[in-house]
Design a protein around this nucleic acid. Structure first.
Lengths: 238, 238
DNA sequence: TAGTGGTCTAGACCACCTC
DNA sequence: AGGTGGTCTAGACCACTAT
């Protein structure tokens, strides 16, 4: 299943990451890229628009596609990204300690959203960076659609297992970030000082068919927390 | 300048917001929408894809475009949105108190990014919600491209002025969220308790021609801070 | 089988930038 | 004037979902 516009986007992204196109350079023109890849203009443009959304390039009318300089900080952080992916791409050499994995009842609500699945697999994982606890992740993997989870998956990449082994199409998530006092058990696991709050990220993730499949609460040590985002202005006013 | 795909997107977004299409409904098929708006398929699809990016609909192969239920929480918050826009669309009836407005030197760096503009207009604004200080915004509006700022603009909507009066095209931003101890002067303005940290959002915003124009540091009271995001999974792996 | 969305094409016209 | 990206069209073929 090789979509042309995705292959072009990946190829150009590779070349940008590997410095074959430097920040400040212009990519070849759309016409040239069409000839290079043997594709029509709309297909080539779809690839370029994808790169623009990610913040890798900026398209300038009448001039060309300019390579931006922000990927090093921004690249994989916004959007839906797993801890493992982040760890890999930022070279954090972090460590994951699985504290619990068990099956049980699913939460009935996530904020105001009612959850239909009755069962769930609960995982609790502590992320350790530089010998210091940094993040405590509590995940409910909803059943359906996830019925079993091999023991070692939680230790490594959950998303790789869901996408590659189970063939699930992870598509979108709603996320909420707040700062809160947390219960003593959690504070202890994160080695928080007395009354020190944690950054709490709650997210509900969906498959392409709109089934919710994962409900996550991440507790971050405030001194280790950093959220980086690249955002384009989305106007939809009237 | 009425782009067809934008007009279709706005029209459909209106109808979703005004409950003419309910969550769980399918929009008319692409073919029907083409006939309805008198446009080609690709143009209609561009509008639908825009709505999908915003999280208003989810496209399902072989079925149709499903109206999602998340806009009420998520709608205008992620991306680049001004406080005034948020205030309006969430009905926060917040209050803005302009503490300072003066011209001076621009900061030389924003994180690792060097700033070329030498001059800047500095604005300090306190956002008050329910009689309580909630956010302290410090903005540097870079000169160039912004040379003057009428007195009352800071009190109302800066973005409306930049986009509508100056005709600037606000396009993208990099944003960084951390939790930090802040200097006493700032802690006092936010009425923070002793040693209570603030949520600090630093952002650098750019025009469509890649000129940086605004450098903002927002200090949030942690108990008032909430960041809501709708994110689609962006894969660009190899 | 009929309807749906997903991808792709080969053209057209326009607005913008540069020379 | 010539090159660039932005928009739009009218088709085509495919894969998926229903019945």
């Amino acid at each position: 299943m090789g979509l042309k516009h995705e292959m072009i986007a990946q190829d150009l992204a590779e070349k940008i990451k590997h410095q074959q196109f430097l920040p400040g350079d212009f990519l070849p023109s759309e016409k040239q890229l069409c000839e290079l890849y043997g594709t029509s203009r709309e297909t080539t443009r779809k690839a370029l628009n994808h790169l623009a959304e990610l913040g890798l390039i900026q398209k300038l009318k009448g001039k060309g596609s300019l390579v931006l300089d922000i990927q090093k900080y921004t690249f994989p952080i916004s959007g839906i990204t797993s801890f493992q992916e982040l760890n890999d791409s930022l070279g954090l050499h972090a460590q994951t300690k699985v504290l619990q994995q068990k099956t049980g009842a699913a939460p009935k609500y996530f904020g105001q959203t009612p959850i239909e699945a009755k069962k769930a697999i609960f995982i609790e994982r502590l992320r350790i960076i530089d010998q210091q606890p940094a993040v405590l992740d509590q995940d409910y993997l909803l059943d359906p659609p996830i019925t079993v989870l091999p023991k070692d998956v939680a230790q490594h990449s959950l998303y790789a297992y869901l996408e590659n082994e189970l063939g699930l199409e992870i598509d979108y998530a709603t996320k909420e970030i707040t700062v809160e006092q947390v219960e003593p058990a959690i504070a202890e696991k994160l080695a928080l000082k007395a009354n020190e709050p944690a950054v709490v990220v709650r997210s509900l993730s969906y498959l392409a068919d709109t089934t919710p499949f994962q409900l996550t609460t991440s507790y971050h040590r405030p001194d280790k927390f950093k959220f980086i985002d690249f955002a384009r202005r989305k106007k939809l006013n009237h």
